[in-house]
Amino acid sequence: MGRVAYVNGRYVPHDHAQVHIEDRGYQFADGVYEVVPVVDGVLVDEEPHLDRLGYSLGELRIAWPVRRQVLRLILREMMARNGLERGIIYFQVTRGVAPRDHKFPAKAKSSLVITTKRLKPPSAAILENGVAVSSQPDIRWERCDIKSLSLLPNILAKQAAHEAGAFEAWLVDEAGAVTEGSSTNAWIVTHSGEIVTYPKGQGILGGITRQSLLQLAATRNLRLVERSFTLDEAKAAAEAFLTSSSAFVLPVTRIDGEVVGGGKPGPVTRQLREIYVANVDAQIRAAK
């Protein structure tokens, strides 16, 4: 069976899925999205993702395309139709179709598109050796807390990192602080044992994996600090890692070609990944 997409109330072959040329997501990037990981056929951290979707929609004054409970049912139907056991489910909501005009249309109906993608977990080599990141200037708009479709600065940063042979870009603001990655959140572990990540606010997207990891680490009395840190501090840190919905917790062992923490994943990073994976396993058991 081929891949299936959902477009505004219809399940259609993925290759035939399409939206109107005047959908404001296409014309203006006037919309938001979410990506939810799926492990063993279970949506991981589903409710926090839906909460964030609601927040993003509210900030842009876009109406929910369907009721939250209906969306939950559609997500499960999409997983079933695509036989998705491990991967991600992507859904985006735009302000809808209207003649091209910058101001909000008076009567547009929100558009909903959903797709799925199979993904393999990070390889044993990546978990054993870590990944490299490349620093890039943070040129994004000032409402990074909204999970907007407008991702061109992120794309440019990710491409620059790829061309530099790195797995991810870490974005550095005008004050010299590492804000986050182009599609991940950035963390360091200091030599005194503090686990540090940039504070939640309009300067970063509040990652759901980031949020969950903060909560899980707090229950184990680990030393968590939400503050800014510089690129130099990151390079001199005892450990560094990144978090995302698709990769969970990944060690960072090189920044701009410089070795971090001896070039191997450190004990705190390993512990945090174990904690998060155990949380995912608990969600799977609870759902089955």
Rank of each mutant, 00 (worst) to 15 (best):
M1P: 00
Y6M: 06
Y6N: 11
V7D: 09
V7H: 13
N8W: 04
G9F: 04
R10K: 15
Y11G: 03
Q18V: 14
D23S: 00
R24H: 01
R24M: 00
Y26C: 03
Q27L: 14
V32A: 09
E34K: 11
E34F: 01
V35A: 15
V38N: 13
V39F: 11
G41L: 02
D45V: 08
H49N: 12
H49R: 06
L50K: 07
R52S: 05
Y55I: 09
L57C: 06
L60V: 14
I62C: 02
W64E: 03
P65F: 03
R67H: 10
R67F: 06
Q69R: 15
V70L: 10
L71N: 03
I74L: 15
E77V: 00
M78G: 12
G83R: 13
L84F: 01
G87T: 10
I88G: 08
Q92A: 06
R100Y: 11
L112K: 08
L112C: 05
I114S: 14
I114N: 13
T116L: 09
T116S: 10
R118Y: 08
P121E: 14
S123M: 07
A124L: 13
A125H: 13
N129C: 07
A132Q: 08
Q136V: 11
R140D: 04
R140S: 02
E142N: 13
E142W: 00
I146H: 00
L149F: 01
S150W: 03
P153W: 00
H162M: 13
A166E: 07
E168S: 07
L171M: 12
A175P: 01
G176A: 09
A177N: 13
V178H: 02
S182E: 06
S182H: 07
S182V: 10
T184G: 02
V196K: 05
T197P: 00
Y198V: 02
Y198F: 14
I204C: 05
I204F: 01
R210I: 07
S212P: 03
S212F: 09
S212W: 09
S212C: 14
Q215R: 15
Q215L: 12
Q215H: 11
A217R: 02
T219D: 09
N221T: 14
V225Y: 01
E226D: 05
R227V: 05
D232Y: 01
E233A: 07
A236C: 10
A240G: 06
F241I: 11
L242H: 03
A247S: 12
V249W: 00
L250C: 08
L250G: 03
P251I: 09
V252P: 04
T253N: 06
I255C: 04
V260Q: 07
V260T: 07
G263C: 11
G266E: 08
V268Q: 06
Y276H: 04
V277F: 05
A278K: 04
A282H: 07
Q283Y: 06
A286L: 13
A287P: 03
A287F: 03
K288E: 14
